[in-house]
Each structure stands twice: as structure tokens, then as C-alpha cells.
Write a protein that binds this DNA or RNA. Structure first.
Length: 478
RNA sequence: CGGGGCGUGGUGUAACGGCUAACAUGCUUGCUUUGGGAGCAAGUGACUCCGGGUUCGAAUCCCGGCGCCCCGACCA
């Protein structure tokens, strides 16, 4: 472990250090020898697996199927869509040599798979009867980013990318928004992260997209995190890759496409939303381990009885589908408590001589730190209810926090002040990209999204003074 | 690529240009312990990142490398 003393910098002192300390203390990940790449350790990967499992089930419910496409993309594929190549050119890794010789055509390591998938889709699709085509892929992608940050921005990352083809523009748009909604539900129900849905301004749009919808979340330092995106690609890629079909009226038409994805970045968001200065805090629904039973053994006579009881309680909980483990290591209790706290296990049950005598267990919850003695007979019900409580409490806390950080301003002075203070600011914007760029230049704030919840109201742009029809959300972001 | 910081036992740190490079922690062994990071004892462990220079003398000062971290531009 990077930091054996496991001291965590308080959030108030240095947010970045706090974030890295939590990751180290919970043993989630570390940087690899290849700069910018990340090694995800078992503890961290377990979280990813849980995310995959839950999302996969949600995708299947809306008829999306999994497939896998190659890691390598012929360079010419990328060049076919103008905005796409311009957007990704600076950050792609290219293989020029293989098999001991120079390749005739360089191979790009996928930064995303639109191009290679759509080349294939064009062969799969003949008529409107082949539509909609709904494909998802779990994969790694590589983007040579300038500055890495564990989970939030690494050179190689794991993600899920969904790609669909539709007969009509409306259907594609609907699908893009449907997947966005699924991300929202997943974020809020499972990760307990409240999110805002909206559409990106042109300058923040995905390279090659017609519209980019997004899911934005707010972290404990007030910065925004793009949690996920869903793009309505229009016919841009279809035209570039010849994704055509014979329509109902017997004419050839280009498909309407979408793509959508979430990545290991979500783990970063999870950490920054819930964790505290003692370490990781995991919502029960995503925790690899929901309950840890720590034995407290004073002398050898009690050892067997305590362990037996722990095993018994553990089996009751397992029967209810609760993920539980017993820590019977022969070390002092405090050491165990601190360790599981750092790792974010939602509920800790302590079992010692006194509990055995009273037929009780001592229960501590990670989110509030609250400790109570509970009856061993009711342990299953109590723990199940507590897990639910923790899930709800974490979400409510995050919602309250977001509310606290949201501001509505009408003057440039207030805008600058609130952005400085690390808030999410609702403000009028005239829609001019140059004004947007100027605001970014002066305050480091970007338009996170034009929220779906935007109320249409006349106003004047905070920067240019020109008329505006509604407020957009500005914030500093990761 | 720019700005800042830092390289000393496994880890975290200390040491005015001057004694055998110190302290904490870890690890090993033994005993005693166990309801919030235990105690005692003995042991283990560092060419002070590399290369040069200044000096009677360098972890310390100078020059040059290399590496790491943070901040910014870029981004899921």
C-alpha cells in the first residue's frame, strides 16, 4: 500500500490529496509503470463488476445485446468522419509496427468504436426489417490524455459503449434519451449519486455527434463530473460508413444512429460523492461487501463459541442475499474496525463475549457512525433495514448537498463570485459559442449542460448582455 | 507543453557544511495482551536517485541528468 500509516488528508485541506488518499487507503487502484495508465486492484475491480452487472441487466431489459469488436482500427476509418477525426486525432495511440515489420497502414488503438462498428453495421443492415440494431460492448479504450487522474481520466480505461441504428430520427433521439434515463436511474438508485440530465452546448459536443445528451453530477468540492453521455449521431456516421437500408417506401435511406457510454470514471464519482475523511463510503447496493462481522476474542475459552455464532449469523444473512464476511483475525478489534471503515463497508457487526452472553450484536453503520446493540434474533431484519437506510441516507445527503451548491445569478459579478466559491450556477447565456469561450477563459467555468428541466424565461446573457431564452448550468469541472 | 514542489532503511519523516546519518512505523523472535490503531524486551533494515564539481570535510552548497507528485491546457 502506498500509504501504510493510512492517514487521510482532510477534504478541507487538499481535495486532490484527500481523493488519492481514499483510493490508497481503500486499496482500490494505483498508477502503473506506463504513465497515465491505472492498475485497478481487486477491491476496486469488484466495484466495477457490480456496476457492469447492474447496467447489463438494465440494457437487456431494453433489448440491447452485447458484442465485441477489435481493439485495432485501420487509420482510414477514423478519417472518414471529419469532426470525429479532428476530435480524436491528438489523443490516439497508433501502432506502426507489428510482426517485426512496418505496417502498410497504421492501426489506431480504439479511442471509441464508432468507426469500426459502423463499418460492420453497414454489412449487417439491408432493410428496415434489420432495424433497430441495438449493440453494446464492454471494452477498454485508449486516449492519450495529457494529465491522468486515477479513475477520472486515465490513458486506458474500461467502459461500456452502446451503438444503435434506427429507421427514423425520432426513434434514434428517443433511444438516446432512453439510455440517458437508464444512466440516471442507475446513478440514483444504485450509486446514490443525484444527477442532472441535459444537452451539451455545441462546443462541448462529442466529435461527430448531432446532439450530445449528458448526465452531470456534483462532487464534494463543488466541481462537476460528467458521469455519462448519450449521443444522437444523426446520419453523420451513417453517411461516412454507408450504413444504409432499404426503407418501407422502397428507397435507400441512411440510418439514424446513437452511441452512449459510461466508464470506470463512475468509480471516481462514487468516491468523491460519498467518502469522508475516514475513507471510502460505499452505498450498499454497489458495495462488494455489505456487512463485515468482526469477532472480539478475549481468551481462548470463548473463541470457539464466538466464531460459531459469527458463522451462524453470517449464514442467516447470506440466505437473505446479503454480502457478508467474517473477520476472525486474531488482532486487536480497533485495528479491524479502522480497516473496514477505510474500505467503506456499510455495516459492521461486532461479536464478543458480552454479546454472546446477551444474545446481541453490536452494529455500527459507516455512513453516520452510529452504533447500537441489536438483538441476535432480529439481526437479519435489522441489518436489511439498515442497509436500505444507508442507501437512502447517502442519496438524500447528496441531494441536500447539491441543493446547497446550486445558485441562480443574474449579474456577471455574482456569477464570478459563485463560480469562485465552487458552485453550480444557473445563468442566462445568449447561445453564442464565442461568449461561452470567453467565460471559460475568464472563470474556468464551462457550460455543463442545458438542463432538460430548463424553464423557458426571457433574460439577458450574463456576459454579453444579449437576450436569452433560458438558463444553463455553469460550473468548473473535472 | 507551461507553473510549482520533492527525491534519505519497506513506509512516513529528521539532521548548522563537521562524531558511527536520527526518529517513528513496519518486519522478525519471545512473553504478555485483545469491546476503537496494545505493551515490554531483543533483533532486522540506507552506497542519503545518478554523474560531476567546490571543500580538510557534502544528505546538506553548485552544475548537469533521471524520476516522482501537485496545478493548468486536453478529456468518459
Amino acid at each position: 500500500m502506498a500509504n501504510e500509516t493510512n492517514k487521510i488528508t482532510p477534504r478541507s485541506e487538499d481535495y486532490s490529496e484527500w481523493y488519492l488518499d481514499v483510493i490508497a487507503a481503500a486499496d482500490l487502484a494505483e498508477y502503473s509503470p506506463v504513465k497515465g495508465c491505472m492498475i485497478i486492484k481487486p477491491t476496486g475491480y469488484a466495484i466495477w463488476e457490480n456496476m457492469q452487472k447492474d447496467l447489463d441487466a438494465r440494457f437487456k431489459e431494453v433489448d440491447v445485446e452485447n458484442a465485441y469488436f477489435p481493439l485495432f482500427i485501420p487509420e482510414r476509418f477514423l478519417n472518414k468522419e471529419k469532426d470525429h477525426v479532428e476530435g480524436f486525432a491528438p489523443e490516439v495511440a497508433v501502432v506502426t509496427h507489428a510482426g517485426g515489420k512496418k505496417l502498410d497502414e497504421p492501426l489506431v488503438i480504439r479511442p471509441t468504436s464508432e468507426t469500426i462498428m459502423y463499418d460492420t453495421f453497414s454489412k449487417w443492415i439491408q432493410s428496415y426489417r434489420d432495424l433497430p440494431l441495438l449493440i453494446n460492448q464492454w471494452a477498454n479504450v485508449v486516449r492519450w490524455e495529457m494529465r491522468p487522474r486515477l479513475f477520472l481520466r486515465t490513458v486506458e480505461f474500461l467502459w461500456q459503449e452502446g451503438h444503435t441504428v434506427h429507421e427514423t430520427e425520432e426513434e434514434a433521439d428517443q433511444r438516446a434519451r432512453q439510455m440517458l434515463e437508464i444512466y440516471k436511474q442507475f446513478a440514483e438508485e444504485v450509486l446514490a449519486i443525484p444527477v442532472i440530465l441535459g444537452i451539451k452546448s455545441d462546443s462541448e459536443k462529442f466529435a461527430g455527434a448531432f446532439k450530445t445528451y449528458c448526465v452531470e453530477a456534483i462532487m464534494q468540492d463543488g466541481k462537476a463530473l460528467q458521469f455519462g453521455t448519450s449521443h444522437h449521431l444523426g446520419q453523420n456516421f451513417a453517411k461516412a460508413f454507408d450504413v444504409k437500408f432499404l426503407g418501407r417506401n422502397n428507397t435507400m435511406e441512411y440510418g439514424w444512429q446513437t452511441s452512449w457510454g459510461v466508464s470506470t470514471r463512475m468509480i471516481g464519482g462514487l468516491i468523491m460523492t460519498h467518502s469522508d475523511d475516514k475513507g471510502l463510503v460505499l452505498p450498499p447496493k454497489i458495495a462488494g461487501l455489505q456487512v463485515i462481522i468482526t469477532t472480539i476474542i478475549n481468551n481462548d475459552e470463548d473463541r470457539e463459541a464466538i466464531i460459531d455464532k459469527a458463522e451462524e449469523v453470517s449464514s442467516w444473512l447470506k440466505e437473505e442475499g446479503i454480502k457478508v464476511k467474517i473477520d476472525k483475525r486474531d488482532i486487536r478489534p480497533g485495528e479491524k474496525f479502522y480497516e473496514w471503515e477505510r474500505k467503506g463497508v456499510p455495516v459492521r457487526l461486532e461479536l464478543g463475549k458480552k454479546d454472546l452472553a446477551n444474545n446481541t450484536l453490536f452494529m455500527a453503520r459507516r455512513d453516520t457512525g452510529e452504533k447500537t446493540s441489536i438483538s441476535a434474533d432480529d439481526v437479519v431484519v435489522t441489518v436489511a433495514k439498515t442497509l436500505e437506510d444507508i442507501q437512502t441516507n447517502l442519496f438524500d445527503k447528496a441531494v441536500a448537498y447539491r441543493k446547497e451548491k446550486e445558485r441562480t445569478v443574474d449579474t456577471w459579478e455574482d456569477f464570478v463570485k459563485e463560480i469562485e466559491a465552487g458552485n453550480f450556477v444557473h445563468a442566462h447565456w445568449c447561445g453564442d459559442a464565442e461568449v461561452e469561450a470567453q467565460i471559460k477563459e475568464e472563470t474556468a467555468a464551462t457550460i455543463r449542460c442545458i438542463p432538460f428541466s430548463q424553464k423557458m424565461e426571457d433574460g439577458i446573457c450574463i456576459k454579453s448582455g444579449k437576450p436569452s431564452k433560458g438558463r444553463v448550468i455553469f460550473a468548473k469541472s473535472y
